[in-house]
């Protein structure tokens, strides 16, 4: 019965490594969340429960400004990159399109180049053209790196699209415009939502490209957080981080349906 025992060992090994990885992934986050309620100025042992850092967070205008900046950039770059994504994916649907290789190349290459290079190149572009860095340049940068993702997610949705549904609609009397609005777009919608969500998260998450393209006075949350960590005043960051983790969880939970598509499109 050596076989059975060794199979069990094999499975046990996988379970063990899974559990260890879970601990690895969650312990730091968990500690961060717990310590955001710790009544201490520095990160030492537990000194009692407090919400005062959340209150400080609320009173901090810089953080509020950074938050709104982040949301504005994320919202606008999501909107633009998703619209670009929809149009491009629809264009690429034509398998005989003569610009197919060119556009696919431009879409895929940014994904296989380290982020920092996009940051550097855009920084130099804005220096070369003497454009003042700020909200506008950050927005441009975010749209640029989001386009690739939105195109790919929406495109993969369209690739699985059953063309006979269009024929069925036509057969039942629907004209091309009706078919687009009533059949095609609704079926693309999960892909569009997934793409938008991905773009939104990527935009909120980005540090390095924003770092290179934002000027003084325009901070997004990651930029603000990094600066604060470097200056060493981190107590409010704990609570801010906890809120941001909460926001992530919220996104994950409300998008239960979208999640499935995200998993399949990754």
């Amino acid at each position: 019965m050596k076989r059975i025992s060794s199979t069990k060992l094999y499975q046990g090994l996988n379970l063990t490594s899974f559990s260890l990885v879970m601990v690895f992934l969650y312990i730091p986050i968990l500690i961060l969340v717990i310590f955001s309620f710790n009544n201490a100025k520095i990160i030492t042992g537990w000194k009692g429960f407090t919400l005062k850092y959340y209150a400080q967070l609320w009173d901090n205008d810089n953080i509020k400004q950074a938050f709104w900046n982040t949301m504005l950039i994320a919202g606008l770059s999501t909107l633009f990159s998703t619209v670009f994504g929809i149009l491009t994916a629809l264009g690429l649907e034509n398998k005989k399109f003569s610009g197919r290789r060119l556009i696919s190349g431009l879409i895929y290459i940014p994904l296989v180049i380290p982020d920092i290079l996009m940051g550097v190149s855009l920084a130099l572009l804005f220096n070369f053209t003497r454009v003042n860095t700020g909200m506008f340049t950050v927005l441009i940068a975010h749209i640029t790196f989001c386009i690739s993702y939105t195109v790919i997610v929406i495109n993969s949705r369209l690739e699985g699209f059953d063309y006979s549904l269009v024929e069925a609609a036509m057969d039942l009397g629907a004209k091309p415009a009706t078919i687009f609005w009533k059949v095609k777009l609704p079926l693309m919608l999960p892909g569009i939502i997934a793409a938008a969500l991905l773009a939104f998260t990527l935009s909120i998450d980005d540090f390095i490209i924003t770092f290179f393209t934002s000027g003084r006075g325009f901070d997004t949350l990651p930029i603000y957080v990094e600066g604060t960590i470097r200056r060493g005043t981190i107590t409010t960051i704990n609570s801010l981080s906890t809120l941001m983790i909460g926001f992530t969880l919220f996104l994950v939970i409300i998008t239960k349906r979208i999640r499935k598509i995200l998993i399949s499109s990754l």
Binding site: D162, E167, M170, D171, G173, A174, K175, V183, P186, L187
Partner: peptide, 20 residues
């Protein structure tokens, strides 16, 4: 005549029901 203007309807091999 375009398919949407014909008085002809089709049952497709994979049924092609609108999933949404």
């Amino acid at each position: 005549i375009a398919p949407y203007n014909r008085q002809v309807n089709t049952i497709f091999q994979n049924y092609s029901l609108f999933p949404h």
